[in-house]
Amino acid sequence: MKKLILFSAIILLASAFSSCVVLSPKKYKALLARQDSLNTGWSGSQLSNEELQNAISRLQRDTANLSGKLNELNGKYNEIDGNYAKLRTNSSSEINKLSEDLKKREQRLKEVEDVLRKRDEASNQLKEKLQEALLGFTKSGLTVEMKDGKVYVSLTDKLLFPSGSIVIDEKGKQALAQLAKVLKEQPEIFIAVEGHTDSQKINNLGQIKDNWDLSVLRSTSVVRYLTEVEKVPGIRLTATGKGEFQPLGSNANAESRSKNRRIEIVLSPKLDELYNLIKK
């Protein structure tokens, strides 16, 4: 552009000389002013051009940075998309697995419920048989009831033993004989014999030191009678003594203490089937 301006000035001068026209001072000043204006415009255009070049460079750098960030974001998006796809696949597999596990548990629960129902039915039948077989002893303090799927036959000490004794009397033997008939017909029943006492201290009973001794010895007397005399298999029986620590009453008076002195025969059906289900 500078060359253009110089060329224009030369043409103007050439024209002036070629025409042999003598410029007046006014026209000469106008020409100089015109030249200064052109020079100023050239300088301004040069400055604007520089600024544009700088702006272009900045835009190119920004574009390159944005392009890099866009590529990075695309990479992260692809990674997230891949993880999401995997998660959906895994979630579907996990949901299917959980659904199968739930079905298996529901089936096991149904099987357990069936076993418990059969147990309760068997216990109720046993209770009815025992109530019928032992009906004649209910007035002597014998009771039969069912709790938690087990049948409890409770015999007061006056039905089985003389006062302070561990030797079963004749009436007690009759009750145990009737009980044994039913038990021998029910080979799948476990038999736990528990001795209980009141809280009164033991005095002058020779080898019997305290209520623990009395409860255990009375329990073992019943077990021996059932196994040795009535031939109930010993493998089905256990003998335990609870002493005074599981009373039915308060021990505050003679009547309550009489209820606490008892033998409880706890009958429970075998639960092998239930245990096998639980272990699965």
Rank of each mutant, 00 (worst) to 15 (best):
80 I>P: 03
50 E>M: 08
76 K>R: 06
84 Y>S: 06
98 L>N: 09
97 K>G: 13
44 G>R: 14
50 E>N: 06
107 Q>R: 11
62 D>W: 03
101 D>G: 05
75 G>I: 11
87 L>F: 10
62 D>E: 08
54 N>Y: 11
69 K>H: 09
70 L>N: 12
105 R>M: 13
41 G>C: 11
61 R>T: 12
43 S>L: 15
112 V>C: 09
88 R>H: 07
38 L>D: 09
98 L>E: 03
56 I>K: 09
78 N>I: 05
39 N>M: 14
53 Q>V: 15
75 G>Q: 03
44 G>H: 03
114 D>N: 14
47 L>H: 06
92 S>N: 05
72 E>H: 03
98 L>G: 00
97 K>D: 12
42 W>R: 11
113 E>D: 06
91 S>D: 04
71 N>C: 06
53 Q>H: 07
103 K>N: 11
47 L>P: 02
61 R>C: 06
80 I>K: 06
82 G>D: 08
74 N>H: 00
43 S>N: 07
110 K>I: 08
63 T>E: 04
96 N>V: 00
107 Q>V: 14
75 G>H: 07
104 K>N: 11
69 K>P: 03
108 R>E: 01
85 A>E: 06
92 S>D: 06
52 L>C: 02
55 A>M: 08
74 N>G: 09
86 K>N: 12
108 R>S: 07
54 N>M: 07
37 S>V: 12
94 E>G: 00
56 I>M: 08
49 N>E: 07
49 N>T: 14
79 E>S: 00
47 L>Q: 13
58 R>C: 10
102 L>Q: 08
106 E>M: 04
72 E>R: 05
98 L>H: 02
54 N>S: 11
43 S>Y: 13
55 A>K: 14
46 Q>L: 15
68 G>I: 11
63 T>S: 10
106 E>C: 04
47 L>T: 14
68 G>M: 12
46 Q>F: 10
71 N>L: 09
82 G>Q: 10
73 L>F: 10
79 E>T: 01
44 G>E: 14
48 S>I: 15
97 K>S: 15
